[in-house]
Computed example of a mutant assay.
Amino acid sequence: MLELRPCCECCGTDLPPASQEARICSYECTFCAACADGVLRGHCPNCGGELVRRPIRPAERLLKHPASTVRKVKTMGCTAG
């Protein structure tokens, strides 16, 4: 089950569960589209994996399987790996 993390790890931008701007790697590291497409150039700075659009969980399923509320933001932001 995807965690659906609440924000970009680089800049802290909020990424609610229905956001089409969320990008993730296979480890669920989460970034906004601006960071993913910009400084990260489509690759996760943590594992080097590809960043793809995070799927959207239907609202009725969020009741049973809510999104994470744990914010993970890099204190120094991100740089391309």
Rank of each mutant, 00 (worst) to 15 (best):
T30W: 02
H43K: 14
G38Q: 13
C44V: 04
P16M: 01
L40E: 13
Y27E: 09
P17A: 11
D37I: 06
A18D: 15
I24N: 00
Q20M: 03
S26I: 10
C32R: 00
P17H: 13
N46H: 14
G42D: 02
C32A: 07
L15M: 08
A22M: 09
P17D: 07
F31V: 08
N46V: 13
S19D: 09
T30I: 11
D37L: 11
G12C: 05
C29K: 01
F31Y: 15
C35E: 03
L15D: 10
C25Y: 09
H43L: 06
S19F: 09
R41P: 07
H43F: 13
A22G: 05
C44E: 12
R41W: 13
V39K: 03
A33G: 01
L40G: 11
G38M: 09
A36W: 04
R23Y: 15
R23F: 14
I24R: 03
Y27V: 07
S19A: 10
L40T: 13
R41G: 09
S26W: 00
Y27R: 12
Y27L: 13
P45D: 14
H43N: 07
I24M: 01
F31G: 02
P16N: 02
A36E: 04
A34E: 15
E28G: 07
G12I: 02
A33H: 02
T30N: 10
A22T: 07
A18M: 09
P16Y: 00
C32L: 05
S19P: 14
G12A: 06
S19R: 06
T13M: 08
P45S: 15
C35L: 08
